[in-house]
C-alpha cells in the first residue's frame, strides 16, 4: 500500500548527477525506453535513474511493512473467525509485498540491511497515512478498502514503468490487492448498512481518515524540468494530482452510495471540467507528519526496531553455518 506522495526531490544534486553522463549511452537508454522496452538490472542506466528508483521502490517497501501495523493490531480483535482469517491473509500479503519490493531495490545495488537501517533510523520515509492510529475496527476497514484503493491507483500506473524488476513485483502485488479491495469494501458495506451504532462507527472512521487520505497522493506536483525527465524515463507514470483525481472519481460515488458523508463541504465534481473540486488539504500538517511529528511516527519505528532487535539472536543462530557465503545481488 503506497500512494507515491513526496517521492522525488528536485535538487541541484540531481542535476549534478545528470551532468556528467555519457551522452551516447544516455541516448541509447532513452531510445530503449521510448521503444517501450524494459530496463533490466545489468543494463547501463543514468545515476539519477538508479537513485530515484531506489528511493521510490524502497519507500514503497517500507510502506508495506509499516502499513501492516495499523491493520495488524486488529487481527486479535476482528469480529468473527472469517474476518480474522481474511485480515491475517491480508497482513501477510502486505509483508510479502515488502519482500518483493526490497528484492527489486536490491537489484539496483542497495542492500537489504542498509534499507532496514535507513527505515529504523528515520532516514527513509514511508507513506504518511500509517502514522495515524486505528481507534476502532471501522478504521481498519477504511484502510483495507480505501487506502488500498488509493494504493492500487498508484501501483497500476507504476506497473507500466520502465524498470523490469519493479514492474514484475507490481504485477504480482496488484493481482493480490484485488482481494484486499473486495474484502475491505465488504467490511465497510457490512458496517454502513448495519445497526445505527455500526453506521456511526463507520462514519466516524471516514471523518478521521479523510484528511490523511487526501494527503496520501502527495502535494500537487506542477510540471518542472525535474519531473519531466522522470516522466520521460518512465519512473514517474502519473502526477500526484492525476492519481488523486482518479481515486476521487472511482470511490467518492461508492462512499456516497452507502449513505456515508465525506467531511468536506466543497467536495464535488465540476461537470464542465470533469475534475473533482475539494478543500485544499493542509499541507503544513502533511509536512509536519512526514518529518516525524505525527501521532504515531515514534511508535511505528519503535515497534519495527524492537522486532529487529529482539529477533537478532534468531538470525545470528541461523547464520552460524552460512557466514562464509558470498552475497550476490538478485538477478532480475
Amino acid at each position: 500500500m503506497y500512494g507515491g506522495g513526496q517521492v522525488f526531490e528536485s535538487s541541484s544534486v540531481n542535476n549534478e548527477l545528470l551532468k556528467d553522463e555519457d551522452p551516447i549511452k544516455l541516448a541509447e537508454f532513452e531510445a530503449r525506453i521510448a521503444r517501450g522496452e524494459k530496463i533490466e538490472p545489468s543494463d547501463w542506466m543514468p545515476k539519477l535513474y538508479r537513485k530515484q528508483l531506489i528511493r521510490m521502490i524502497e519507500q514503497h517497501g517500507h510502506s508495506e511493512i509499516i502499513g501492516a501495523l495499523p491493520e495488524g493490531t486488529w487481527i486479535t480483535r476482528a469480529p468473527g473467525f472469517k474476518r480474522k482469517l481474511a485480515l491475517m491473509a491480508k497482513v501477510q500479503d502486505e509483508v510479502g509485498h515488502a519482500q518483493l519490493l526490497y528484492g527489486a531495490a536490491e537489484t539496483l545495488g542497495k542492500s537489504r540491511e542498509q534499507m532496514i537501517e535507513d527505515l529504523i533510523s528515520g532516514k527513509s520515509k514511508y507513506s504518511n497515512i500509517f502514522n495515524y492510529p486505528t481507534f476502532t475496527w471501522a478504521d481498519s476497514c477504511f484502510i483495507s478498502w480505501l487506502v488500498d484503493a488509493g494504493a492500487i491507483v498508484n501501483q497500476l500506473a507504476n506497473a507500466r514503468g520502465s524498470y523490469g524488476p519493479y514492474c514484475r513485483a507490481l504485477d504480482r502485488i496488484c493481482a493480490e490487492e484485488s482481494f484486499h479491495l473486495k474484502y475491505g469494501h465488504h467490511c465497510v458495506i457490512h458496517l454502513a448498512t448495519g445497526t445505527p451504532k455500526q453506521r456511526k462507527m463507520m462514519q466516524e472512521a471516514v471523518d478521521r481518515w479523510w484528511a490523511p487520505m487526501m494527503h496520501f497522493f502527495g502535494p500537487s506536483d506542477k510540471i518542472s524540468t525535474h519531473t519531466e525527465i522522470l516522466t520521460k524515463w518512465k519512473v514517474k507514470m502519473a502526477t500526484n494530482d492525476e492519481c488523486r483525481q482518479q481515486f476521487l472519481d472511482m470511490y467518492v460515488p461508492k462512499i456516497w452510495e452507502l449513505g456515508l458523508t465525506i467531511p468536506d463541504d466543497k467536495l464535488k465534481k465540476n461537470d464542465e471540467t470533469g475534475e473533482w473540486e475539494f478543500t485544499e488539504p493542509d499541507w503544513e500538517e502533511f509536512k509536519r507528519v512526514i518529518n516525524g511529528d505525527g501521532p504515531l511516527n515514534k511508535e511505528r519505528l519503535a515497534v519495527r526496531r524492537t522486532a529487529e532487535e529482539r529477533g537478532a539472536w534468531v538470525r545470528r543462530a541461523l547464520a552460524k553455518n552460512s557466514e562464509d557465503q558470498e552475497y550476490t545481488a538478485p538477478l532480475a
Partner: peptide, 11 residues
C-alpha cells in the same frame, strides 16, 4: 541504528 553485514543472509 545499524545492522551487521549479511544480517539478512544471502539470496
Amino acid at each position: 541504528f545499524s545492522k551487521t553485514e549479511k544480517d539478512q543472509f544471502i539470496t
